[in-house]
């Protein structure tokens, strides 16, 4: 047997597989771009929070108001809502309209599809976050850190959204599951200012932690405890996602 030749063949096979994977992810990204441009329910998520932040930051001036107040407030809400709602809506719609089945039968692996959608939503979220950050007066390394922690938070939200999307049979179901999760994630950080026990609760959610971190971006320092909470949130999201995948073992519906 001609071993080097065999290895060459194997390598060719491997790089072809990788090229296929890349092609699948890029195609899903392209499709998502085309599709979302027409999807007002999704687009509004990415426009609403940045616009509200710009308006509030410029219109309202309360003496003694902490720095970045509105950017932090709406940033945390944006973090808990947009990526989650978007991801779950996209997945649930593809299941409901039976397009996901076509994709899976065109040799797209579930992971490739999820990566395509995830990357797309993440990029949109980051664009919105940049507007919120700039409107909220973040500059220089502070802005960089703001984007960094937002980016990490979006990742967790997208995984939670994917779990909801995989779990749901249709868009209705996805919305009704997303709603309470979203409310908890987005409003806890806001309500934390008014009540000590809510503040405690908020601190164990990633959106609550990120809300706190947004106030310390100028000299960002993650304690072990904070890192632990964020990682635990990520782990919980992944677990939720794995459970959802298991439940709908026939991912295609």
């Amino acid at each position: 047997m001609n071993w080097p030749g065999e290895l060459e063949l194997l390598r060719g096979d491997f790089s072809r597989k990788r090229a296929g994977m890349l092609r699948h992810i890029l195609s899903v990204l392209w499709k998502q771009g085309k599709d979302t441009l027409q999807n007002k329910e999704i687009l509004i998520q990415f426009v609403m929070f940045p616009v509200i932040t710009i308006i509030m930051e410029n219109a309202i001036e309360i003496p003694g108001m902490p720095e970045h107040y509105f950017a932090m407030l709406f940033g945390a809400m944006y973090l808990g809502m947009a990526p989650l709602l978007c991801t779950s809506a996209i997945l649930a719609e593809e299941k409901e309209k039976n397009t996901l089945r076509v994709l899976l039968m065109s040799n797209v692996r579930p992971g490739e599809y999820l990566a395509g959608v995830g990357i797309y939503v993440w990029c949109l979220c980051m664009a919105g976050a940049a507007v919120i950050g700039l409107a909220g007066g973040y500059r220089g390394s502070g802005f960089g850190n703001f984007m960094l922690i937002m980016g990490a938070g979006f990742l967790v939200s997208i995984i939670v959204g994917a779990a909801v999307g995989v779990f749901s049979r249709n868009q209705m179901m996805a919305t009704s599951i997303s709603m309470p999760v979203m409310l908890i994630l987005s409003f806890l950080p806001m309500l934390a200012a008014f009540n000590e026990s809510i503040a405690k609760l908020a601190r164990i959610t990633y959106s609550g932690q990120i809300h706190l971190l947004m106030g310390q971006v100028e000299k960002l320092h993650l304690s072990w405890g904070q890192t632990g909470i964020l990682l635990l949130n990520l782990a919980a999201a992944l677990l939720f996602f794995a459970a959802a995948c298991r439940r709908s073992k026939r991912f295609a519906g």
Binding site: K31, K34, D35, Q38, N39, K97, N98, T99, R101, V102, M105
Partner: peptide, 13 residues
């Protein structure tokens, strides 16, 4: 090649 109702199209494209 498959053509059937449960093989959807992207409505907004």
């Amino acid at each position: 090649g498959i053509m059937m109702d449960s093989f959807g199209l992207y409505e907004r494209m």
